[in-house]
Design a binder for these strands. Structure first.
Lengths: 189, 189
DNA sequence: ACCGTCATGTAATCGGTTACATGATTCT
DNA sequence: AGAATCATGTAACCGATTACATGACGGT
């Protein structure tokens, strides 16, 4: 009974789905149909604030997903000959499966500032560089929350931003503490 | 006057130094000399708790760094023929330069849980998966802090762990809030 | 002598990053 | 009409991940 397979998987390239893949799939689902540039805009307005995805990736990833049968492609004939991507049934399914399965996987904290601190960087000098950067990001996150609340974002999307705000508050607290702590080379400033 | 160069850079492969590179350099500096396996142990005891570095990387990275002239290699003759790595003058220098220059670069938050939340996952179901994982990691970080305080770790290293503790507390708070919030499908549980 | 696990790597692949390049619109 | 910037890609390289594989050592 190996015969009775819904469709031939051999027609599709097999790819592994990375976080980037799900971001692209998720954004395309929200948009219905999107060009890479539209995706770029969406990324810049949302997750782009959490971490960077180079635009070359935003052009390449939909191609990968299309080759694997998760997206379909419609190309304009005139002008810019843009490519518009939308979900296939397969695409909708993998995305739904991923979204619906709760994960206990945790984030990874790759923080260059903390890394330098651990390896002996001058704590207060570092704090003076890190603190303003985190304060600015905190402000940006708060703006984003306002925008999201104003436009009709889902409560879940607001929650995500609030999580970011919580972490930035924690960072600001942390680096302030470091900055104000009595240091080994106190008086150097 | 292009002649008067301290040494010939052409002898060395040019590589880019990634966070992984600095982790390896930093750990080798702490140890004085280390085999990949020793590095693996050190990683497991420290940053391995923040994120994973596959062991193949821990064997490959010192090779890269050695080819670029940042590490020197001593190989055992008998038995396991282990390779012991230690810093060269160049290696000490790039590491010191990196450590000493305060960075305003920020971390990137790549959190699969938050990603799923943003794309419409059931919030409370997710919370039930994420919460225990974060609670466990919080406990582990607190243990690590005790160990570090007992063994003679630098105050900076203790600070780094405390930062991790702060973030895990924030996560626990967040997911508790999500779990206990009135959900759209309240009563489904 | 055997077996498990500790220890040490290599091979193959690929996603991601960096850099390069150019066409289409819009503004002045 | 020219400049600026918006928009859309491609090429090349490489670090990271996954999977495979095997040798050394310690205990029974």
């Amino acid at each position: 009974m190996v015969r009775n397979i819904p469709y031939d998987p051999g027609r599709h390239t097999v790819i592994s789905l990375t976080p980037t893949s799900y971001i692209v799939l998720g954004l395309i689902q929200q948009a219905g149909e999107a060009t890479p540039y539209a995706l770029k805009q969406m990324v810049a307005a949302t997750i782009g604030n959490f971490f960077s995805i180079p635009h070359s990736q935003i052009y390449a990833e939909p191609e990968r997903l299309a080759a694997a049968g998760y997206l379909k492609r419609r190309q304009e004939q005139g002008g810019r000959r843009r490519k518009h991507y939308s979900l296939t049934a397969r695409g909708r399914k993998v995305l739904a499966d991923w979204v619906e399965s709760p994960t206990d996987e945790l984030y990874e904290l790759r923080d260059p500032g903390l890394l330098k601190l651990a390896f002996g960087s001058d704590a207060r000098e570092l704090a003076r560089a890190q603190l303003p950067a985190h304060e600015e990001r905190l402000r940006r996150f708060q703006e984003i929350r306002h925008v999201l609340e104003a436009s009709g974002a889902t409560p879940e999307q607001v929650l995500v931003v609030e999580s970011g705000i919580g972490h930035e508050r924690e960072y600001v607290r942390f680096w302030r503490k470091v900055r104000d702590s009595a240091g080994a080379i106190a008086g150097s400033q």
